[in-house]
Computed example of a mutant assay.
Amino acid sequence: MRTVTLTKGVPDFREGQVSFDEDGHLERGDTPTVMNPNDEPALRAALQTKIRRGGTASVMSMGPPGYGDVLREAMESVYADDLYLLSDRELAASDTWATAITLATGIQHLDETPDIVFAGFKTADGETGHTGPQTAWCLDWPMVTHVVALDVDEDAGRLRAKRLVEGDVDEIETVEAPLPAFVVTDPEFEPSYRKAAHRLQHKDLREETVERAVDHEDHMTVWDHEDLNLDPDFIGLDGSPTIVSGVDPIPKAPAERDATMISPGDADGMGELVDEMARFAGGD
């Protein structure tokens, strides 16, 4: 069983240091980056599949060289065996369509066709939810979205998934799809390890991955657009039909409170702190 999980680095908006160029494009190399939190359910689904069915788990991302740290974090989450970074200046400023073309080509460039590709339901920066479905379309694979539970019958070459259907009321729909398939996980996805053997395997894989992640670059393959034989006219800014009409930078929030530092050894200061807290404890 071979799986690939797609992940992305997104701006760390908590830092308030998001950088844009004069055309309104995000300058990712100058912006603090974290792993997209909405990819975590996809990573959990890939880990569950590896523990239950064995095989190899890979993680792939497209972005600048600094995304190696994002992939390291993903490796620690999914206990990945190897990492793939699609990185090239020609890929800069890609919209979801150009990104999907690049990711699909990267998946097709692997030495073995994956059984399942996992993706999160949207990114924390773009919020479109387009990249996963567009990548599935480029691959011409069956796709199941909003997956909250999953199992695989490798012998039959099929997966069975429960997906959340939102309407007047939330409903759960059970669907099947042939492999290879593309799975977009819902934030409600929770892995299930009912067998003791699965829980023991989980523990063993975690210990192996801690050691592997220390030298994650030794397990990372970097491909540029030439490696993937991608036409520059169909990737990056030139291959992106989306037009950004305007961007409002997010300013760093000003501090609204003054902080008083008190050392635990400062008896008078600690006494004043207790007196201050006691007023609120008493309902004042």
Rank of each mutant, 00 (worst) to 15 (best):
M60P: 02
A149R: 07
H219Q: 08
S192C: 10
E76F: 02
E190M: 10
M1I: 11
D69K: 13
S77K: 15
R206G: 13
D227C: 04
G129R: 11
D233G: 01
A278S: 14
T174D: 11
T31H: 05
P65C: 09
E276H: 15
D153K: 06
E173A: 09
S61Q: 08
E22Y: 03
P11T: 09
P254G: 02
V34A: 02
R199W: 03
R158G: 01
G9S: 07
D218V: 00
D233S: 08
T128G: 11
T56V: 13
T174K: 10
D39S: 06
L273H: 06
D140V: 09
T7A: 10
F13L: 10
A161C: 11
F20R: 09
V183I: 14
D21K: 07
P180V: 01
W223Q: 01
S19A: 12
E207W: 04
Q48A: 12
L228P: 05
L86Q: 07
R52P: 04
L159W: 06
P65Y: 04
A253Q: 10
V183W: 00
P114R: 03
V144N: 05
D266P: 07
A100G: 08
V214M: 03
K8M: 14
L6A: 11
D115H: 14
A80E: 05
L110Q: 11
D23Y: 14
T31G: 03
D153W: 12
V152Q: 09
E272A: 15
G54W: 14
P251K: 07
G283S: 07
P11Y: 08
A46E: 06
S192K: 12
L86Y: 07
G126V: 15
K203F: 05
A124W: 02
I51W: 07
Q134F: 12
A259W: 13
D231K: 00
D88Y: 12
A92R: 14
L200V: 11
M261D: 12
V175L: 13
M60R: 02
D231P: 10
L91P: 12
I107L: 15
P232E: 02
A136D: 04
P249Y: 08
V244A: 02
V18R: 00
R14L: 00
A197H: 01
S245Q: 14
L26V: 06
G246C: 03
L150D: 06
E176A: 08
G236V: 08
W137S: 14
L71T: 12
T96L: 04
V175I: 12
H198L: 00
D215W: 01
R163I: 10
A197K: 11
G282H: 13
G239L: 04
A278G: 09
I250L: 10
Q134R: 15
A281Q: 08
